[in-house]
Computed example of a mutant assay.
Amino acid sequence: MTDTFVALSDPTRRLLLDRLSAQGGLTLSQLSDDLPMTRQAVAKHLAVLESAELVASERDGRCKRHYINPMPLAKMAKRWLVRFEDVPLGAMSGYHAPQASGQGGTAVPAASAHS
């Protein structure tokens, strides 16, 4: 799962996943269209996505077509996000962000449920 987080940490890789989500079966050239980088740079990003199993590729003659693989994202959502579905937002209303020590800032009071 660490590979999934690493792969998703880059905005270019998220953009590539968005493009593949909108239209699967794109080639490297199609994915590279309108991006301010070389095809080789896009290929490196695709390699990271493939190693994280977020993208699957298939040969189509001389072309290589890329498709999004939703399974790692579904597993991540199930493991990390489902546990917060039933948490009432009111339960978090008293949350205070930790203060960095030595910053001299003042604490901001949490919003009261009665305000």
Rank of each mutant, 00 (worst) to 15 (best):
L49H: 08
A7D: 07
Y67C: 06
L28C: 03
R19V: 00
A113V: 13
R59G: 01
R14P: 01
V108G: 04
A91F: 02
L15Q: 15
A97R: 15
M71D: 15
M1F: 00
Q23E: 14
D86Q: 14
F5V: 09
L81A: 12
N69Y: 08
P11T: 09
P109C: 02
R62T: 10
Q99E: 12
R14W: 07
G105H: 13
R39W: 01
P88I: 01
A56G: 02
L89A: 14
R13I: 10
C63N: 09
R19Q: 09
V108K: 14
M92D: 01
R13M: 08
G104A: 09
L15H: 15
T4K: 02
L31R: 02
P72I: 05
A77F: 11
A91V: 04
A107I: 12
K78A: 14
Q30D: 10
N69R: 15
S51T: 12
A91S: 12
D18E: 11
A56L: 07
M37V: 11
E53F: 07
F84P: 03
R83E: 15
L20A: 06
E53T: 11
A113R: 14
G102Q: 06
L16P: 00
G104M: 06
A111K: 05
L81Q: 05
S21L: 05
A97Y: 12
L89C: 06
A52P: 04
A97C: 07
A110M: 00
T2F: 05
A113G: 06
S115P: 10
A113I: 13
Q40R: 15
P11I: 08
A111M: 07
T4V: 15
Q23P: 00
L73Y: 07
V42C: 08
S29K: 05
S101L: 10
V42N: 02
L17W: 04
R59C: 01
R79H: 10
R65M: 01
W80R: 04
Y67A: 08
V42D: 04
Y95I: 01
C63S: 10
D33W: 00
Q30V: 01
T4L: 15
T38D: 11
T38I: 04
A111E: 06
Y95S: 00
M37I: 09
V82A: 13
G105L: 15
D34M: 04
P11W: 09
D86T: 12
P88K: 05
G105W: 13
S9G: 15
W80N: 12
V42Q: 02
Q40H: 11
D3W: 06
P98F: 03
V82G: 02
E50I: 13
S29Q: 03
P72S: 09
A111V: 07
A52T: 03
D10M: 12
L20E: 02
E58I: 06
S51N: 13
A107T: 10
M37R: 13
S51D: 14
L46F: 05
M37C: 12
S115E: 14
Q40P: 01
A100M: 07
H66E: 03
S51K: 13
P109Q: 05
D86H: 13
L46P: 05
D33L: 06
N69D: 14
D10V: 05
D10A: 14
S51P: 00
L16A: 03
K64A: 01
